[in-house]
Amino acid sequence: MQVMIWSKQKYKMNYFVDYKEVNKMREEFTNEIFKEDLLELYKEKDITRKGIITDNKFLQEIKNVSSNKKFIKDILQYEKDFNDKKILKHNISNKKIKLVVDDLIKIKSLLKQTSGSIKYQYLKKYPNIINEVDNLSKKIIELSLECQEQVEKYIQIKQDIVSYKYQNEEKIKQAQTIEKEKAEQEILKLIGNQILNFERILLNQKLEYNQIQYINNGRQLVWNIFNTLYFTTRQEEKYLRRFELIYKKQLSKQAKKELALKKRNESSLNWEK
């Protein structure tokens, strides 16, 4: 079949059609012409696919994974290990969380008297509220030992980073004390902002929470704070490692490997002497 095609429209049109479009047209025509042949092929394909699934033992086993108790046990064990190693433990009793919730309600009543946005930096106009928030964040840190460890590690890393800046020991000590105060304030700000975010949600809500809802949401807040502390310390650790590489001029892992490979065939004699 041979065709001549044009358009009766009056505005100018492009005379070139892209190869991709032409290929699409070709595909459409072939699919339409060989429709009957393709239908038979699809049927054959379906039958063979069904055969593959029913005959293959491995696929059948994968299908029955949800009923296999041993497999589920292994996966759960793996998940447990992952939780134990990587993220802080969240085993906190309801009594301790109740104390946190009481403070949250107290801050909520104080925040109703303020105006403006509810953020840590802006609320420094009201030292009364900031003191309350800081006390609460200190309480949350004291809830778990691991959390305290992470905070100490964070401060230590900050101090280590500063120590690369000076060579005189007195100056290093002075800088470290300043850095410790700064790091503590940073952590208080980090936790305080999370608490205030939670408070903002409480203030915007029309219905008041039950005690159970308060406890559940309070628990979630504490978990969130723990996780953020964990991840911020990990990030600082990475930052420290980079500092060490730059200032101590240590070689990276890959560079060490390459150096070892180079020196592999060197003789023990130094010929230059």
Binding site: M1, V3, S7, V17, M25
Partner: peptide, 20 residues
């Protein structure tokens, strides 16, 4: 689909052809 790919409106399309 021809009209779509040529970027022409369907009712604007004109053609003449023969089969051999």
């Amino acid at each position: 689909s021809f009209a779509d790919k040529l970027n022409v409106k369907y009712h604007d399309l004109q053609y003449c052809r023969s089969s051999s």
